[in-house]
Design a binder for these strands. Structure first.
Length: 304
DNA sequence: TCAATTTGACCTGT
DNA sequence: ACAGGTCAAATTGA
């Protein structure tokens, strides 16, 4: 049953992420032709997956309940507010009513790790700290920063170990249903071009790229062959121009890559932001899914 | 100004 | 009744 649920969650995550990618891919075109309906539809699809995942995660306790962190849930409606509350006072009972009830998470679907650092690549928001009986160090409570945006139910508890090892006992609950920041934060792309031909696949990609570097040996080779419109020129001008160290994908990919190298060459892109990284990833995915070009470019980096 | 953290109160499970 | 998990107002910091 638990395995069944895991597979269902994985399937939902894949579906949602695919919808996200489609949404990102269509973003530019939507702006161009104003296909708002498609955009709304995609937003709804992504929302449906996220909502489903949230319900699945919250159903660990046996019932699908409301999200206690939701800004409006659990609050008395304006009509229900007492005069004291409306006046800004805080009567003792109002607090009780406002907080309502919440379910404690169960230890099922939890995993324990002993680590030297509490950093794990995800963005956590601390929501509580508690002194624990017979423990020197307090226990800290964290939930995913993207809880509200993505309905991510992941949470963790961190407590420093009693011994002098400076290690932390970390208990994780639930799983992240938000996009993995490890992927988003990976701002560097390394492209290995092999027998690349001139193409304009990325001509619509709006991502900007900074600090582009090429493999030194290849750059030298490229310099000797460089033509006025090839990639090395674009890279050089981007790196030389300190006032605007960014170029566009289309500038790179519409250049004559063939003159840049023969055999193999490397391009390293330090992307300006995680958003650009995500979009680049999406476009490169499309690139690799194109059978004609498959194998032309070897991509390295943390992309799934 | 806004987001993150702190911290005391509230709430639940045992 | 108590320990510990969660909430949310107050505080802090960028």
């Amino acid at each position: 049953m638990e395995e069944h649920k895991d597979r269902l969650i994985d399937t939902l995550i894949r579906g949602r992420d695919s919808a996200h990618k489609l949404q990102n891919f269509l973003h530019l075109k939507l702006n161009v032709d104003g296909s708002v309906l498609v955009k709304d539809l995609l937003t709804e699809i992504v929302g449906s997956f996220s909502g489903g995942l949230s319900m699945l995660n919250s159903s660990d306790s046996g019932d699908i309940c409301w999200d206690p962190a939701s800004p409006h849930v659990g609050l008395a409606s304006p009509v229900d507010l007492s005069p004291e509350v409306r006046a800004g006072k805080k009567p003792a009972l109002a607090v009780k009513e406002r907080r309502g009830c919440y379910k404690r998470r169960k230890t099922v679907d939890s995993r324990v790790e002993i680590r030297a650092t509490i950093e794990d690549g995800f963005a956590w928001r601390k929501y509580g700290q508690k002194e624990i009986l017979n423990s020197t160090f307090p226990r800290c409570y964290y939930r995913c920063t993207h809880k509200h945006f993505h309905g991510c139910k992941a949470a963790k508890q961190v407590q420093k170990l009693e011994d002098d090892s400076n290690m932390y006992h970390i208990t994780y609950f639930g799983r992240h249903t938000c996009p993995n920041p490890n992927t988003l934060a990976h701002h560097e792309l390394v492209l290995d071009f092999k027998d690349s031909k001139k193409h304009n696949l990325f001509s619509n990609n709006p991502s900007t790229i900074r600090n582009i570097q090429s493999d030194p040996s290849v750059k030298q080779e490229a310099d000797s062959k460089a033509q006025s419109t090839d990639v090395s020129d674009i890279i050089s001008s981007a790196n030389d121009d300190h006032s605007s160290q960014s170029i566009k994908w289309d500038e790179v990919f519409s250049a004559d890559l063939g003159s840049f190298h023969e055999g193999s060459s490397l391009l390293r892109f330090d992307l300006e932001d995680s958003c650009a990284s995500t979009r680049s990833h999406d476009y490169l995915n499309e690139f690799f899914n194109n059978g004609d070009l498959l194998g032309d470019i070897l991509l390295s980096g943390e992309f799934s």
